[in-house]
């Protein structure tokens, strides 16, 4: 998929992707010559069709998570997946805790609204996003930023 600014005859560059959580999808593109922006707006069915393939419009900014498609789309039981460390003690719990970003109460509250079936995966994605950017505290604002940058559907 490519976007062409017809007036400038220039290929537009991908700007950002948004998935506001209502099942819709937005991707915006900008002409490097005239700076005109356009947005691709997809309805829930179109979004789902693309999502069903397990692909991301605009390209992947994050490696595919284990069973990402299933965990994002199946209504499963809460305790189906145990994240690493839940079933066995980590080598150094203290070391892991010191390097992990802290979650504010508001961020935790928001995370708790994510179905448990997929919560472990979502939490890991946010934690990695924060760690890669040396963010020590995960707030709802950090979650919003990550969601926009990474294109996380309704997370």
């Amino acid at each position: 998929m490519k976007f062409l600014c017809i007036e400038c005859d220039e290929q537009m560059g991908f700007e950002e992707r948004q998935q506001p959580g209502d099942g819709t999808f937005t991707a915006s593109f900008k002409c490097p010559k005239c700076n005109r922006s356009v947005a691709l707006l997809a309805n829930p069915m179109e979004t789902q069709l693309v999502g069903s393939l397990g692909v991301k419009i605009g390209g992947r900014t994050l490696d595919e998570q284990p069973m990402e498609l299933i965990r994002s789309n199946v209504v499963g039981k809460d305790d189906a997946f145990a994240e690493e460390g839940q079933m066995r003690q980590p080598v150094s719990a203290a070391a892991a805790a010191s390097s992990a970003p802290r979650w504010t109460p508001d961020a935790n509250a928001r995370l708790s609204k994510v179905p448990n079936f997929v919560r472990g995966m979502v939490k890991k994605i946010y934690a990695e996003y924060a760690a890669e950017r040396s963010i020590t505290e995960i707030t709802p604002e950090v979650m919003d930023r990550a969601r926009t940058e990474l294109g996380l559907e309704g997370m």
């Binding site: 099942g23 829930p44 069915m45 789902q48 069709l49 069903s52 299933i70 994002s72 789309n73 199946v74 209504v75 499963g76 039981k77 189906a80 997946f81 079936f117």
Partner: peptide, 20 residues
């Protein structure tokens, strides 16, 4: 992965589900 006795169900959207 599924709750006992629950059928395989997909998240939204519910309409036009047969397509995807």
């Amino acid at each position: 992965l599924l709750e006992d006795g629950k059928p395989l169900a997909w998240r939204e959207p519910g309409s036009e589900r047969f397509i995807w």
